[in-house]
Design a protein around this nucleic acid. Structure first.
Lengths: 230, 230
DNA sequence: AGACATCCTTGGCACGGATCAAAACCCTTC
DNA sequence: GAAGGGTTTTGATCCGTGCCAAGGATGTCT
């Protein structure tokens, strides 16, 4: 899951997702991972791709000096583990107990075995590229407040639960994860959330749950329209 | 071309490139574009992919309020124009007169016509994903000085000309392009370059040419090792 | 060659977000 | 239920980068 730009031209584009039409189970196995487990590390040879069924994954890259970037969160529907020259290019571990469908990487590299699955995986990779391009804009050009608002907005659209006019969003990752995803510090993430709470745009219900009180205002803030908090 | 992280684990990975082995010319046409011309706009249906042969392209995305992100520069060897749901997802115009090889998009979407070309394009898309993941780290976690140093370093490795111990790099794009690529302002780019000049790491020879005087120092600065300027 | 527009550089200042520090809160374990 | 460690929040301060403005350099057109 990346943070993308709302708008007509570029509708909320999620992390590379497969269509709901079920794929043949050929070459695929369902597997469970407990929170904290690692699916793969940077540099590992890619043996399979993973479609998240339930739960949440986290993909990260590290700099030698300790700086970290959370590349993406893997939500249900996301495809994780595209190879770069046959190798994994990020670490990937489990934030919340996860069930994944595994697809043999050969389905991506080799189009003859299962052309339908191959095509779906290629399309997923292309959508991934598009979503990442949007995320560039977010990392490079948005303020801290816009980043946090965008993050909540995308999550609420994707996995929020309807509560009448409001939407409930679960944040299973900790503040440091959000910060490393958005290119901020934990303090700034915390302050941005507090500000949204003071402006009555959200209510924070325990650390890991946020109620979106005014979705339109949140969406406006995600695009820099500070007017929306009025 | 993206700015990637140097290091053993992740060697300089360029924008999605095709291997040097020549592809069949099936479905492909070579075309010329003059500086300033547009190859496509965001939202256009994708008719073909472009492999840059000579020259330089620029891919951009715009926010409604005018903020701009340069997604990537297209240098020789790069593949540009991957479709997202069949549509272009960025604008693309020409910075310096460019010759491109066009590949029918069907070669990417349909694996049966020309399996070899199809496979090369898929691999290029996967390398693109990897390079973009590195670029995330750069946008989200590096300082202005590190960004500019990283940018020069990648360019010098990719298209720099050997001059004994030094390397000459051409910067055909203007400062605003560099700024929008790195998530900075033109002033900050200019100041960072001036600082590198004062530290005798580079020499600026006209606006569009930079001589890398101390490549190792530049590489160190790109990773945040300020010690290297000594 | 001269005039003009555009781009680049530099300076001064302001502000957003990082950093450092401490208090409040949460969760686990005994 | 109390103790402890980790996480989150809040506060104070600092610094890097953005913003505004002016001057200089570069390129283009007549």
């Amino acid at each position: 899951m990346y943070v993308t730009i709302p708008g007509d031209k570029s509708p909320i584009a999620f992390h590379a997702r497969l269509p709901k039409a079920k794929l043949k189970a050929t070459n695929s196995i369902e597997t469970f991972f407990k929170a904290g487990a690692y699916l793969f590390y940077e540099g590992d040879p890619v043996k399979c791709l993973y479609e998240v069924k339930t739960g949440i994954l986290r993909q990260t890259r590290l700099l030698e000096d300790g700086r970290r970037q959370v590349i993406a969160f893997g939500y249900p529907g996301d495809i994780i583990g595209f190879p770069v020259d046959g190798l994994h290019h990020t670490d990937c571990d489990v934030l919340a107990d996860t069930r994944v469908q595994r697809y043999n990487h050969a389905a991506l590299e080799n189009s003859t075995r299962d052309p339908v699955l191959h095509n779906e995986l290629v399309q997923a990779a292309l959508r991934e590229i598009g979503a990442m391009q949007d995320h560039f804009m977010m990392l490079g050009r948005k303020s801290a407040a816009e980043k946090v608002a965008s993050f909540l907005w995308v999550l609420s659209e994707r996995v929020g639960l309807d509560q009448g006019q409001c939407r409930l969003v679960s944040l299973p990752m900790n503040r440091a994860d959000i910060a490393d995803f958005l290119g901020l510090t934990t303090e700034t993430v915390s302050r941005s959330l507090s500000q949204l709470r003071k402006d009555k745009v959200i209510a924070i219900e325990g650390i890991h749950n946020v109620m979106i009180l005014r979705p339109k205002a949140l969406r406006g803030l995600s695009e820099g329209l500070d007017v929306m908090i009025a």
